[in-house]
């Protein structure tokens, strides 16, 4: 199959210890996958805490999750899936040497990620106002369970760590826009776009599990 070729052969990205662009690309991608393994296990610890406490206090999870708004959780799920689509489109644009499309898709992704964080901000502040805070700071009386604070400690740890990842993703994509505007990327070199895309899809996958586990119990 004939690839859209950059026949002028830009090779300024190629570092001397790699044989060619392909080997450099594959090495970077494998490195990213190893990082994603550590990310899965990083979040895995929190998912485990969730499972252990849910096995101990099943009724607590049913009661406490009613404080979470399924509608906004669902909206955020759609927003993140949409951003996964635009990041995949950004990679496709880079592969086809369409740098304008790359930048546009990155901006849409940044916009959707920001929408996600704004919704999360309103969810958090609404709970803070009620006294639903993690751990010892919990002071809400509306849930008839003495361990109600534990559910929300887990909620804040999981969604908080996920939110930090979204913020990091926004930063990475702003950096990609900057680089793309400086004409760094082309169909022969778009490794940072590919690898940020992998990161972003993993952040999406984590939320795909957080949504039903936290918002959809009952």
């Amino acid at each position: 199959m004939a690839q859209p070729s950059v026949t002028e052969e830009r090779l300024e990205h190629l570092q001397h210890h790699f044989i060619d662009s392909d080997q450099q690309f594959e090495a970077s991608k494998m490195g990213m996958w190893i990082f994603l393994v550590t990310e899965i296990l990083f979040f895995g610890g929190l998912f485990l805490a969730y499972i252990v406490y849910r096995a101990w206090y099943p009724e607590l999870y049913l009661l406490a999750s009613e404080e979470l708004h399924t509608f906004w959780g669902a909206v955020n799920t759609v927003v993140l899936i949409g951003s996964s689509l635009t990041v995949a489109m950004a990679i496709r644009s880079a592969q086809l040497n369409q740098i304008k499309g790359l930048i546009i898709n990155l901006w849409i992704t940044i916009g959707l990620a920001t929408v996600f964080m704004v919704i999360k901000y309103f969810e958090y502040t609404e709970k803070f106002a009620k006294g639903i805070l993690p751990g010892a700071h919990y002071s809400y009386e509306g849930i008839a369970h003495e361990k109600a604070n534990i559910f929300f400690s887990i909620y804040y740890m999981m969604t908080g760590l996920h939110g930090i990842h979204v913020l990091v993703g926004i930063g990475l994509m702003l950096w990609l826009v900057y680089k793309a505007k400086k004409k760094v990327f082309h169909s022969g070199y778009y490794t940072p776009v590919e690898i940020t895309g992998l990161y972003w899809h993993l952040v999406d996958i984590i939320w795909i599990f957080l949504f039903p586990l936290l918002y959809l119990i009952d």
Partner: peptide, 20 residues
């Protein structure tokens, strides 16, 4: 890369299983 992904899931399940 597929193997890396599968192994991360396998070790996650091991973590859950042993803790439970």
């Amino acid at each position: 890369n597929v193997l890396l992904f599968i192994m991360s899931i396998a070790f996650f399940l091991l973590l859950i299983g042993i803790t439970l």
